[in-house]
Design a binder for these strands. Sequence first.
DNA 1: GCCAACGTTGGC
DNA 2: GCCAACGTTGGC
Length: 136
Amino acid sequence: MSYWLVKSEPDVYPFEQLQKDGRTNWDGVRNYQARIHLRAMKAGDLVLYYHSNEGKAVVGIARVVREAYQDPTTDEDWSAVDIEPVKPFVAPVTLAAMRKMRPLAKMVMLKSGRLSVSPVTKGQFDALLAAGKTTL
DNA sequence: GCCAACGTTGGC
DNA sequence: GCCAACGTTGGC
């Protein structure tokens, strides 16, 4: 089991919308590094859901339900996965708070701000759940 | 709304 | 294959 973090602008597709929809296809990624991560995702992997721009916080947990397939929004070689909501964070963990958390010092998302899909270690994942006052 | 950081593109 | 120019992202 691996852990990941995806970013979404809440103006475009907030976590609440994922909860309403029950499942969505995570497509439109056009970044090679992010594509590598998308293709490494396995069904059942847990995904932290981060709101960029507005909010700037981890707001919930999702799960991979379909592994990488051809992105339906393009004929070019890009991948999409499907995810479903697991549960929202009781307390969203803001970017500012994350930067102060020692267990997250090496977190990829904090080091590479523009990467829309990034790996998370179990230690980082657990630390974020605790900070979010959330248990699975 | 601005700007820094980063990835991509294209000319050489 | 290098690097300057450009476009995009995302924090502030």
